[in-house]
């Protein structure tokens, strides 16, 4: 595409990359704290991964191998679109294999395959503030984080239990980082929350429209909020994958007819395919 020839490596200009890189370093130094950054208008809509794209662009090296997933799958349209953007602007190698990737940009999932040291996960984040739905004002939530005043969140979780018998949050389930900041892990299913804890990979979170970057360094203690008498459970559909038979992977439910028929398949398409390969 000649249209992109006029743009810099990985699209962003160097000044913008420096600004994002400085924010990333502060984010790594203060795990779980949301660093404000001057998010740029990207050539894709806000809400479609502009934060993740800017973080990836600021991190990419020429010899990186990039994997992009949306809902766990490499072939969903927005994942295809973002992957193509970086192929075009950074001429970077791409892969669908989790193990082969050096940077994995994701929306809503953490891959099933174990991550390793040296890998970077980049999460696309719509609303980075875990307290936002309890308190809409940024000025208030910033003060709460400053004071580590998370009473509001405790009350909300407790009210859930009183009303529903369990904590009524199934995705974007809040975590506490190293006993200090309460953090939104992005809208991953709570099934994925345990993968955040003590991971060998570096986890970076970018929220473009909300202009925030935050991070979890490798080997960071990340606990999902819970109560002693209502401990956190990383739940998934109680089925095996109807394609590869995996029992430990997160599943998508697919409706197959209008008679109540359904099947369950791995949401991580690369994982599912690798198991089919093993079986064959």
């Amino acid at each position: 595409m000649t249209a992109m020839d006029a743009y810099n490596f990985a699209y962003l200009d160097e000044e913008t990359k420096r600004m994002i890189r400085r924010a990333l370093l502060k984010a790594v130094a203060i795990p779980g704290y949301q660093v404000p950054f001057a998010s740029r208008e990207m050539p894709m809509p806000y809400g479609w991964g502009t934060g993740g794209v800017q973080v990836t662009a600021a991190c990419l090296m020429a010899d990186d191998v990039l994997k992009v997933i949306d809902q766990g799958a490499d072939d969903t349209t927005n994942a295809v679109s973002i992957r193509r953007f970086f192929q075009r602007t950074a001429d970077v190698a791409v892969t669908e294999e989790t193990e082969a990737a050096t940077i994995i940009q994701t929306r809503h999932r953490i891959p099933e395959a174990a991550l390793r040291e040296g890998q970077i996960m980049v999460f696309q984040v719509p609303i980075p503030e875990p307290l936002r739905f309890l308190e809409p004002r940024e000025t208030e939530t910033r003060r709460m984080h400053a004071l580590a005043d998370y009473g509001l969140m405790q009350v909300k979780l407790y009210e859930d239990i009183a009303r529903h018998g369990e904590i009524a949050t199934a995705y974007a389930y809040p975590v506490r980082v190293e006993g200090r900041y309460v953090m939104d892990p992005s809208p991953i299913p709570k099934f994925d929350n345990p993968k955040l804890n003590d991971s060998p990979a570096l986890m970076l979170f970018g929220a473009g429209r909300e202009q925030r970057i935050y991070a979890l360094p490798p080997y960071t203690q990340v606990e999902s909020l819970d109560f002693d008498d209502h401990p956190f459970v990383a739940s998934k559909a109680d089925h095996a994958c109807d394609i590869c038979g995996a029992t430990e992977s997160y599943l998508d439910e697919v409706i197959t007819d209008d008679q109540g028929g359904r099947m369950f398949v791995c949401s991580d398409t690369a994982f599912c395919r690798s198991r089919q390969g093993d079986a064959a």
């Binding site: 810099n8 490596f9 990359k17 890189r21 370093l25 790594v28 600021a58 090296m61 020429a62 490798p218």
Partner: peptide, 16 residues
């Protein structure tokens, strides 16, 4: 663009 990307990754790795 390429050298600062490589150098940044070294710093990112160092801080993490």
């Amino acid at each position: 663009p390429l050298q600062s990307a490589t150098a940044f990754r070294a710093v990112l790795q160092a801080m993490s």
